[in-house]
Design a protein around this nucleic acid. Structure first.
Length: 847
RNA sequence: GGGCGCAUAGCUCAGUUGGCUAGAGCGCUUCCCUUACAAGGAAGAAGUCGGGGGUUCGAGUCCCUCUGCGCCCACCA
């Protein structure tokens, strides 16, 4: 039955086996398995904009290793694949790929053909196209991209069940996303509100707290004098944003600040623009920051928003959604002065204002340059502004302590791997300062399923949105008509208007367990997989994906969405810097697969501790390749002895204590690796297995080789051969999650079924003494050293070997005597008593 | 400012409830064409376990403290 190649090779095994696995459907989820036998995985839907990165390979391999273990351990593994194709990344990719940009004011052109399909020339001016045309191109490109990704995933050997894939833009996802939202609205968990929000002036969309990041930017303190209304001098402030003077609505200082206490309630005049503003006390003002008094503008930063709200101040909005100064003159502001900045960008306005202040003498001294953190959208290029707009929110505890506490508790229901990641979650939830903003003023995404009645003046009545019945989802309010209205009434006074916005991508991907588990569509499936067993993801998106998924599950199901959260680390450059595309140091995964073989790349991934940032290391891949190669070669060796008698009970055949002690060691490692896997510590399982494997090859195999070749008769050989087989069988299965291709290849030489459908090894329990073999191996090493030092071949004959050892070791050495003589080509061995193990090797005369 | 993590051979890292004479791989040195494997094998050199203090019969492992690196969070006038 054995079918062993003369020259085992790793070349080409990936395509061969990936194809076979798919054809045989060996990773199909058994949808009839009872819940307790299911292991379900909430796979991260990968962003389909661009190419696969080694970081993806790294983290997805970790999940696959766990999935493969669970499958072998007897679980029906629910392992779907998701594509996160909705949202901004795809829009950007479409713009760059086709050389177009979305302009909602353009009419739909049914015959539109993009000028390019890939790599438009640098100078090309993006062609404005209608929203429907733009969405068609998005749909077209994601299909192409997803196929390319799927191909690479298969090459990586992911044991995904491809019949359970989904995309966050597909109809089913849209239905789930809209349904969950409607239920949030019905329960009062989602609401719409007009409020100041962080705004990206390039993408022209509101962004959520979770998508903001600080960047250190150069700025400058400008000391500006505000004349007091009583004529008694001036109040000086320091500001980094003099261009917002026209937006100034008040001044603020700390209530305990004695310098300003007398001024509370009095007014000052804003330079250039002339509006009178009151000096107010508030605890958030810091006496030792700047001059201790600050101007409040609508809005310079989030503190301004707080002051504005809590002090109930007026509004002087001057920054528009395009990042330019608005044309309308704010209330109380000198129109002539304002005209000189209207229409300018924020940057240009600052220059103009500083110039004017210098001329008027109200800028005191030179601006003092500083580096200070500025809020950016994580995908944006210009600082965020704060503009007032109507948006949809989901309550997430940012404005309510009870909910915050409840969500922290949900997080505590999970087992976190590694455990300290739970701190990050709690840290984030406890630091929230507003509800979750889910609406985006973008195009390619799930539409917000809402319309608004228009009053007689055509103004939307936002307080009572028209919502669709769940049965007709998904809907697009820009084309579908609300119940009780006709299409002609769209955008007419007394009629209705569709909500123009889409959901942020997290608003949909926060529902991946529900999407993948076919919530409300296939109740039987959903009940078998939800709550899911495992959520694998990067630690950088705890605050977004992980938190938002918990929030949705908390609302909809009243449970945590998973049992385990497994956080993977980053890939670092060999020089320990975070690896990123922008630095141009990224090696493509395909190149690595070709160069070292997929198993080698997986080995590198699998050796990284869960959650630990890991250096990219081709050296580790070389080691992995060696390991995979060795697995094939030792398999060839063991199988080369021909078929063994599997029918006779193991204990009757494996009688030699040396063999039994090897199997006892193997048992220990099976136990350790199993325990490690149960704790999601795949790296430890690999390390223990690998370590034993090399010991097995280098020491055990070498020691018993002679006996296996029948140097001492058939029963002695049978013991060794059967032990070799059992060990090989166990090791192949233990390596299967890590090196799925090499393990399958080696397994296929003596099996008709897949190693990935075999069962995870259990202990053979032969009752051997694991330590019996150790002193024998030690002596073998002594002999090897003597030969190396004598610079002779390891085959050189030893005339006499005198082993000095404590009496306690003598029985073991006697048990290994004949194997030792074979392995070392030793003619004669004598034992002597002594304190420590040592040996004296006398080589035979080479003549 | 708050929280978290890391610091062990030249490099990348193991070291699970304290028992280590501190390990592995790579790299380095030497040797060996040995019928499983020369894209291999054997052997070797190499560490005051970041500094200091403490608990203990015993600390890389526990406690305190300091230093350095990294990450997350924060209202950043």
């Amino acid at each position: 039955m054995a079918n062993i190649p003369d020259k085992p090779t790793l070349d080409g095994i990936e395509d061969r086996w990936a194809e076979r696995w798919e054809a045989d459907g060996i990773y199909r989820f058994d949808a009839t398995a009872p819940r307790e036998q299911v292991f379900s995985i909430d796979t991260p839907p990968i962003t389909v904009s661009g190419s696969l990165h080694v970081g993806h390979v790294f983290s997805y391999t970790h999940t696959d290793i766990v999935a493969r273990y669970q499958r072998m351990a007897g679980k029906a593994v629910f392992y779907p694949m998701g594509w996160d194709d909705n949202g901004l990344p795809t829009e950007r990719r479409v713009q760059n790929f086709y050389g177009v940009r979305c302009d909602p004011s353009q009419p739909y052109d049914p015959g539109f053909e993009p000028p390019f399909r890939g790599d438009p020339p640098k100078k090309h001016q993006a062609i404005p196209i209608s929203r429907p045309n733009f969405l068609e191109l998005c749909e077209e490109l994601v299909v192409v991209d997803e196929e390319a990704f799927a191909k690479q995933w298969r090459r990586l050997g992911l044991s995904v069940d491809w019949t359970h894939d989904y995309a966050t833009i597909d109809e089913h996802s849209q239905r789930v996303s809209q349904r969950a939202f409607l239920r949030n609205v019905a329960r009062g968990e989602a609401y719409t509100q007009e409020a100041p929000t962080m705004w990206d002036v390039d993408f022209r969309t509101a962004v959520a707290q979770a998508e903001m990041e600080d960047r250190d930017r150069p700025g400058a303190y400008h000391k500006i004098a505000f004349a007091r209304a009583d004529g008694a001098g001036a109040v000086e402030i320091d500001t980094t944003r003099p261009e917002l003077l026209a937006a100034c609505v008040a001044m603020v200082a700390h209530p305990d600040d004695e310098r300003y206490q007398p001024l509370f309630g009095t007014t000052v005049t804003v330079p250039l623009y002339g509006q009178e503003v009151e000096i107010r006390p508030h605890e958030l003002a810091e006496p030792d920051k700047g001059t201790g008094v600050a101007m409040i503008c609508t809005f310079g930063d989030t503190t301004d928003v707080t002051w504005w709200r809590e002090l109930d101040l007026g509004m002087r909005a001057i920054v528009g959604r395009d990042g330019r100064i608005l044309p309308e003159v704010p209330d109380g502001v000198d129109p002539a002065a304002y005209a000189s900045i209207a229409g300018l960008t924020v940057k240009q306005a600052q220059r103009a204002v500083v110039e004017q202040l210098t001329e008027s003498g109200q800028l005191l001294g030179e601006p003092r340059p500083i580096q200070h953190p500025v809020k950016f959208y994580e995908k944006g290029d210009r600082p965020l502004e704060i503009v007032t707009s109507r948006q949809w929110y989901i309550r997430n505890g940012g404005r309510g302590a009870d909910l915050r506490t409840a969500l922290v508790k949900r997080g505590a229901e999970l087992t976190w791997h590694p455990s300290h990641m739970q701190h990050r979650y709690e840290n984030w939830v406890e630091g929230l300062n507003g509800d979750w903003l889910i609406s985006r003023q973008r195009f390619f995404g799930v539409p917000i399923p809402a319309w608004y009645r228009l009053d007689d003046h055509g103004q939307p009545l936002y307080d009572d949105p028209l919502l669709p019945d769940e049965s007709i989802l998904p809907i697009d309010p820009s084309t579908d008509v609300p119940h009780g209205f006709t299409a002609e009434q769209r955008d007419r006074p007394g009629g209705f208007a569709g909500d123009p916005d889409i959901f942020d991508t997290w608003a949909t991907s926060s529902l991946t367990p529900q999407i993948a588990g076919k919530w409300e569509q296939d109740d039987d499936l959903f009940d078998r997989v939800f709550p899911m067993d495992m959520r694998p993801q990067g630690h950088d998106i705890i605050r977004t994906w992980l938190f938002s998924t918990i929030t949705r599950s908390h609302y909809e199901h009243g449970v945590a969405p998973w049992k385990h959260a497994a956080l993977s680390g980053w890939i670092l450059d060999p020089d320990r810097k975070k690896m990123s595309k922008s630095k141009g140091n990224v090696v493509t995964p395909m190149d690595l697969f070709e160069k070292y073989g997929t198993d080698a790349v997986r080995y590198w991934s699998g050796s990284a501790r869960p959650g630990v940032d890991t250096a990219f290391s081709e050296e580790q891949m070389k080691v992995g390749r060696k390991l995979a190669n060795k697995l094939l070669n030792v398999t060839k060796f063991v199988l080369g002895f021909g078929d063994v008698d599997d029918a006779t009970p193991l204990a009757e055949v494996v009688t030699d204590p040396i063999d039994r002690s090897m199997l006892a060691k193997l048992d220990d490692v099976v136990g350790e690796a199993t325990a490690a896997f149960e704790a999601f510590d795949y790296a430890r399982a690999l390390e223990r297995t690998e370590s034993l494997f090399w010991w097995f090859c280098d020491n055990y195999v070498e020691l018993v080789k002679g006996r296996a070749y029948e140097a001492h008769g058939a029963p002695a050989a049978a013991s060794a051969r059967r032990a070799l087989r059992v060990a090989l069988d166990t090791l192949q299965r233990m390596f299967a999650p890590f090196l799925p291709f090499a393990a399958e290849e080696a397994w296929s030489w003596w099996h008709d079924t897949s190693v990935h459908r075999s069962s995870w090894p259990v202990v053979s329990d032969l009752g051997g003494e694991a330590t019996t073999i150790d002193p024998v191996i030690d002596v073998m090493t002594h002999v090897r050293r003597a030969k190396t030092e004598a610079k002779v071949s390891q085959r050189a004959t030893v005339a006499t070997l005198t082993v000095t050892a404590p009496a306690a070791l003598h029985p073991a050495l006697e048990l290994g005597r004949s194997d030792l003589l074979d392995a070392g080509s030793i003619t004669q061995m004598t034992l002597a008593d002594g304190d420590a193990l040592s040996s004296d090797t006398v080589l035979a005369d080479p003549a």
